[in-house]
Design a protein around this nucleic acid. Structure first.
Lengths: 208, 208
DNA sequence: ACAAGACTAACAAACGTTCAGTCGGTAAAA
DNA sequence: TTTTACCGACTGAACGTTTGTTAGTCTTGT
């Protein structure tokens, strides 16, 4: 099983190693299989040793979720010094297209399949856990604000019509979320048609 | 806790009562809290009694998932004897708008919040369990075929442009999935802006 | 009397958690 | 320089609880 990393740099302390292990266990066993024992096995520690680094499981999971969501957010939100239209298309390209034949100005790498799967699982916990719900809601909100700002820039620059930025932003982020959910939970299907429809929406309803 | 029913008619045999109980436990405790003990408590039985009705937990969960997905699919897929354009709009209205000020021709009730939450949780299991993955993929496919058929009818009837039905259908179903995920995992937010954007996409890119 | 359906009781395994103890290394005291 | 104390990191064993599951028994309607 090839599993990519939770951290940009290789984990330095044991705490980070533990979070990386949790990341892998969650991919393989799902949230209900995410036990201290399995995390410990993955790190190569006794399960009692986990309690030296984290006071309890809840605390460990909280740290873990924070890291995952931070990582996810950094993939979703990037500033770039290009035209609004170009920026919007770069975002959609990088998030929805699998092949990296990217003509993108800024190098935006899409969330990996593994990160997406974990993200979707954490999101699912938000259905019954209000702590998770708050964090997810916060991410959604910031993502939308980011998109709305781009659209507002486009309107100001005369590139976009006088649409409601928040409305379009909500639609875009909902669309992106749907694509992520598809990629993570269905059979691997090309999102190219989705991307095409999205572009034609922008062409015909948003751009001048 | 007000929980709506998994079955249209009140459950008749104990087997159905058990599935209904599982439905409620899953809402309250999530997938990792879905234990035989809690299901038994909810039905008012000893946990050993569950094993009189189902051979083991796997089998119970399989039946449960089948029921949930059937129910979900029947909400997603409805035939109606109206114009393609009207049918498409009825579908979007019923799936995305919360208030029931519906001017819909056929009475389409949207999936309840509880059903959506459970659906999203089951979907999340598909990230690491191939049995679930297959079922989810099958649902997605039938949902898309349903939408594609409507679009094809629209093209034939001269109401729609000569778009690629499958491409548009994929986009629509992805969009709907995103809305569901939003409703189930974020803070309760109005999907009205999403609906508006979707309509303007159809107006400007699909309808004649 | 018979079978359907629910019960009690017990099982091994896995769960999260605690705690006393061990080991290597570093810093202070002799 | 040797001894002592300390400390961070980890181990091993045990705890009480919950998990899924089985076996056997009792109750109830036919």
């Amino acid at each position: 099983m090839v599993s990519d990393d939770l951290f940009a740099d290789p984990p330095e302390d044991t705490q980070e190693e533990i979070l990386q292990a949790a990341f892998e266990v969650l991919q393989e066993q799902g949230y209900s299989g995410l036990s201290i024992q399995r995390i410990a096995n993955k790190v190569g520690l006794q399960k009692a040793s986990i309690y030296y680094h984290y006071p309890d499981k809840d605390d460990l999971l909280l740290s873990f979720v924070d890291h995952i969501l931070d990582r996810m957010e950094s993939d979703l939100i990037r500033t770039a010094d290009v035209s609004p239209k170009r920026q919007l298309e770069d975002i959609l390209d990088s998030l929805l297209l699998d092949d990296r034949a990217s003509t993108s100005a800024v190098e935006i790498s899409p969330p990996s399949d593994n990160l997406l799967k974990v993200f979707i699982q954490i999101r699912a916990q938000a259905t019954h856990n209000s702590d998770y719900q708050d964090r997810i809601a916060a991410i959604d909100e910031r993502h939308e604000e980011h998109l709305a700002a781009i659209i507002q820039r486009g309107i100001d620059a005369g590139e976009f019509r006088d649409v409601n930025p928040n409305q379009v932003a909500t639609a875009l982020s909902t669309f992106i979320l749907g694509s992520f959910s598809r990629r993570a939970t269905g059979t691997p299907v090309s999102l190219e048609p989705v991307h095409k429809s999205m572009c034609s929406y922008l062409e015909n309803s948003v751009y001048i």
